[in-house]
């Protein structure tokens, strides 16, 4: 069986190489399409668009939390802040692992922020009791925690403008819990 399979591949090797080339070209074209129509980074997804657009390190992830009394808190999730790191380090083993998981998820959101990734992320964020130091004393919508419909995940990107020698930050992605029907 194995010998026959190898022989089969060997006899069709030039044709299979051509099929491989078509798969590679298809992968790259699909990535270019996604990059042009979604916030997917040019650097990711196997499209070989690296060194054309800003990198993930030029992106940041923020949380917008709407409180019960119309207050609003903004929490920086990526790059991780010293305040968040200190809270995570003092949250015990399980709590620390949970908060670390949120940071890792925020980091992954830099590459390809999309609803299928941010919806479960918002669900996890809705279980967190945020310390006052991070939410500036805003009262959570559900008493101790923020309901998914009051949580927005936002991804911002720094982009250098060569003519004006200036870096400008812009919003590249936003998702609010309510949009996911949660």
């Amino acid at each position: 069986m194995l010998d026959k399979s190898i022989e089969w591949i060997g006899r069709r090797s030039f044709g299979l190489v051509l099929i491989l080339a078509l798969v590679v070209a298809g992968n790259v074209l699909w990535q270019i399409y996604l990059h042009k129509t979604t916030p997917l980074l040019a650097w990711k997804g196997g499209g070989f668009g690296m060194y054309t657009e800003p990198h993930a390190e030029d992106r940041g992830v923020w949380l917008r939390l709407k409180g019960a009394d119309d207050g609003e808190a903004l929490v920086q999730l990526w790059p991780e802040t010293a305040e968040y790191a200190s809270w995570r380090d003092m949250a015990g083993v399980r709590g620390g692992a949970y908060l670390d998981g949120l940071t890792r998820s925020a980091e992954r959101l830099l590459f390809y922020p999309r609803d299928s990734v941010s919806d479960p992320f918002i669900t996890r964020l809705a279980r967190v009791r945020w310390p006052d130091t991070l939410i500036d004393g805003v009262t959570p919508s559900d008493g101790n925690v923020f309901a998914p419909s009051t949580i927005s995940v936002e991804v911002y990107e720094n982009r250098y403008n060569q003519a004006e020698t200036m870096v400008t930050r812009s919003l590249v992605y936003r998702r609010t819990g309510v949009e996911a029907g949660q």
């Binding site: 070209a25 270019i32 668009g49 060194y51 657009e53 800003p54 403008n161 060569q162």
Partner: peptide, 17 residues
């Protein structure tokens, strides 16, 4: 295709990258 990515990127073509 990497060359095409550069040609269709206004960011790259402006010299900003």
């Amino acid at each position: 295709l990497a060359l095409i990515q550069k040609l269709v990127s206004p960011h790259y073509m402006s010299g900003a990258l």
